[in-house]
Nucleic acid binder design. Structure first.
Lengths: 241, 241
DNA sequence: ACAATAGTGTCTTTTAGACAGTATTTG
DNA sequence: CAAATACTGTCTAAAAGACACTATTGT
């Protein structure tokens, strides 16, 4: 006979804020819940952590299930955001969620996962802005808070890391990269100053000999460089959102 | 009859990296474990999250239990660090820990807590450095990794926030504040440039009319200002560690 | 007087901000 | 040709880095 559990147990979940760029706007992957609670509501994709997994492994697995994104290095970035543990964040059971942020280059339209009735990309601003016009969903659980925190994390990290590279596919132009900053920060950095900073940061990008582009003068194509930090940082000053 | 639990449950804990400055060196609060596993080993203080608590509330409670630090605003800073969830991080049960960082001004020597046989402040460098001379303990669980991550978080945040204020008691001199940076970064920032930056950042500190100091010319005394961000940041360039 | 710390000033270099101008492509 | 984007250059302002120098206290 063992003592009553002094140590309450919780269900451990992961939630994913999967961000990508589509048509120069930041989008987040949402799934329509097929099971209670919040059945029928839109939510961030996620799932429970298996008995032999850590949170990050579970997050990669869920990501693969929802999007088909593999753990292929260089084809996406996943990092822990923070843990949400309010006792009543799930109205039925005690579920603690380790939220993660995923940055991905443009992905195909998702297919419904196992426990999701539907899945699609939504422009982030439509989800977070109080614009009453659009048919933007109200997210289940505390997922709006998670998305807000994820967005602020990404905005901040574009300042002092080369994380913007995770949003583009190789090869890319400096215009492509600049549009990443424009979409995340809400306003494009000055053209000349942006080029000076990117090209002046050793290892940010690696030039190729090729050129390409959709319209206008063909631009030089680049690949991702090995640098991970931008020092001193590229600060955002213009209209934040 | 309900289905077998597809959702494995875990025990949810918090661990605290409580950092303070003593004699111009950064110290961390360690407790000697009084119960298995790792009985007798040194570890970060922590405990389990109660059924009606979120992780941060539990962290504040554990902090009060271990140190007597209350939730008094302005007398300490607590923030979530990250969650450690490796399935085997506890050799006996599945325990997931939401680690937190606490910055505190110099506190009295701790008293043993409920499940801790002993508690004391240890210089951080002695714990993390591979100096074989000192009788520095090897931390239980993955607590050395947590401490490393906590230290890097604090080092980074001193660059772009006014968090150094959390290490000093009011009123304080600019020399006191500079010694915080020296201890955390491993080398003091240039005297003149540091003063220019702190005094030039509106709301970092608020001057009083009083003077004080232990030796040398008495210095003006300051109180904490309302500013939380330093922009542009004060970058650390000298010997990092 | 000397040690110790506080406080000020200044010169140089780096970097960012602002913006003008030229270049090369498509329609 | 105009539109669109790529690319380069330049002037200015802000900030940091590296110091030197003066000021005020205790011993």
């Amino acid at each position: 006979m063992s003592a009553a559990p002094l140590v309450p147990s919780v269900a451990l979940a992961v939630d994913l804020a999967v961000l990508t760029l589509r048509a120069d706007r930041l989008h987040v992957l949402l799934v329509r819940r097929g099971v209670p609670p919040f059945e029928g509501a839109w939510a961030l994709p996620g799932g429970f952590v298996g008995p032999t997994e850590d949170a990050e492994t579970a997050a990669w697995r869920e990501l693969a299930e929802e999007t088909g994104m593999g753990q292929v290095p260089g084809s996406g970035h996943l990092e822990q955001l923070r843990t949400y543990s309010a006792p009543d964040r799930d109205p039925r059971d005690r579920v603690v969620s380790v939220a993660h942020v995923v940055l991905a280059p443009d992905l195909p339209d998702p297919t419904a996962g196992s426990d999701a009735a539907e899945a699609r990309w939504w422009p982030v601003e439509e989800i977070l802005d109080p614009a009453p016009a659009a048919a933007a969903p109200v997210l289940a659980f505390d997922h709006a808070e998670i998305l807000t925190d994820a967005l602020e994390r990404v905005r901040a990290k574009l300042e002092y890391t080369t994380l913007a590279l995770e949003f583009v596919t190789e090869p890319f132009t400096l215009g492509d990269l600049r549009r990443v900053y424009a979409a995340v920060w809400g306003a494009p950095p000055d053209l000349g100053n942006f080029r000076r900073k990117v090209l002046g940061t050793e290892g940010f990008v690696v030039a190729t000999d090729d050129h390409g582009g959709d319209s206008g003068r063909p631009a030089r194509l680049y690949r991702r460089g090995p640098a991970r930090l931008i020092s001193p940082p590229m600060l955002r000053t213009p209209g934040e959102d």
